Simulated assay, not measured.
Amino acid sequence: MDLQLQSKTAFISGSTQGIGYAIARQLLSEGATVIINGRNQAKIEDALQKLRQEIPQAEVSGIAADFSNIEQVNALIDALPQVDILINNVGVFELKAFTEITDEQWLSIFEINVMSSIRLSRALFPKMMERGWGRVLFISSESGVNIPENMIHYGMTKTALLSISNGLSKLTKNTQVTVNSILGGPTYSDGVAEAVSQIAQAQQLSEEQMKELIIQNTNQTSLLQRFIAPSEIANMAVYLCSPLASATNGAITRVDGGVLTTL
């Protein structure tokens, strides 16, 4: 299927690995021009090299910015060319008991996971509206609906993204600009893979055994009964960014593997 993205330019925050990288690769395979982002230039160069090897015809570049640093974020926004597609993907997570999360940690995770999307959308969304076409996509999580007891601060940020997305979509009436969210489920991103590997080593188990235990113990409602691959999230993201998804606006699209039990 031709997703009609050959003339579009996309920016993806947090895209040197994991879901963001998978979305970049899928967009490039559809002929879009893509600007990736990472915290430092070394990460960007590694990702660019991989993408160009995988997709030789790729029109891809990168801009470094740490979303915990407002000066770097402002510099990134100033450096961006015209962007047709904004994917708010950058995010951090950690396992932590509620009583141990300090004020500084609450503010830090909100700054990266939520304010990143607010600042980028505030800069790019009005220009899309002026041109009459655009796509804004928020990568949220089922954790924003079913808040994890050991990551309440992370779940809060993912709920916030749903609110921002919903509100922005109401500003797009009678245009070809759409704003949507994806509710991803337990995904085997690079960060998750690293954590699983460390836990597996500590418990003297293989990574596959550890993955199965995690799904059985913490995601019992999963219909997939496995982790989701980043490419499976990317498939939905790239469709929602395409002209073919013109009638999908203000939506929360689930790619959660059936983890959520709500209708």
Rank of each mutant, 00 (worst) to 15 (best):
L3G: 05
Q6D: 13
S7E: 14
S7R: 12
A10F: 06
I12S: 08
I12M: 09
G14T: 05
I19G: 02
G20M: 10
Y21H: 12
A24T: 09
A24S: 14
R25H: 14
L27S: 09
L28Y: 07
E30H: 11
E30I: 09
A32I: 10
A32F: 12
I35E: 01
G38M: 03
R39F: 14
N40K: 11
A42M: 11
A47V: 11
L48T: 09
R52H: 14
R52I: 10
Q53G: 14
A58T: 09
A58L: 11
E59Y: 07
S61N: 13
S61W: 12
S61D: 13
G62R: 07
I63E: 04
A64W: 10
A65E: 03
E71Y: 09
A79Y: 06
I85A: 06
L86V: 12
V90N: 08
G91T: 08
F93P: 00
E94P: 02
A97E: 12
F98V: 11
T99I: 07
I101L: 07
T102G: 01
Q105I: 04
Q105L: 10
S108A: 15
S108H: 14
I109C: 01
I109T: 02
F110H: 07
N113L: 10
M115I: 12
M115Q: 13
S116N: 13
S117N: 10
S117F: 09
L120F: 15
R122G: 06
L124F: 09
L124D: 09
F125S: 03
P126C: 04
P126R: 00
K127L: 14
R131Q: 11
G132Y: 11
S140M: 08
E142H: 14
E142N: 13
G144T: 10
V145W: 07
V145E: 10
V145N: 04
I147P: 09
I147S: 03
E149C: 06
H153D: 12
H153K: 03
Y154D: 00
M156L: 14
T157D: 04
T159M: 06
L161I: 00
N166S: 14
L168I: 08
S169F: 05
K170N: 08
N174H: 09
Q176G: 00
T178P: 03
N180M: 04
N180R: 05
I182C: 04
L183C: 04
T187E: 03
G191T: 03
G191A: 06
G191W: 04
A193T: 02
A195Q: 13
Q198V: 12
I199G: 00
A200S: 15
Q203E: 15
L205Y: 04
Q209K: 08
L213M: 15
L213C: 00
Q216H: 10
N217V: 05
N217T: 12
T218F: 15
N219Q: 13
Q220P: 07
Q220C: 06
T221G: 01
Q225I: 08
R226C: 03
F227N: 00
I228A: 02
A229S: 05
P230A: 01
P230D: 00
S231C: 04
S231H: 02
E232M: 06
A234P: 08
A234H: 05
A237I: 03
A237Q: 01
A237G: 03
Y239K: 00
L240H: 02
A245Q: 05
A245T: 09
A247I: 11
T248E: 02
T248Q: 08
N249P: 07
G250T: 04
A251C: 10
I252R: 12
T253A: 13
D256A: 12
G257P: 13
G257D: 07
G257L: 11
L260F: 07
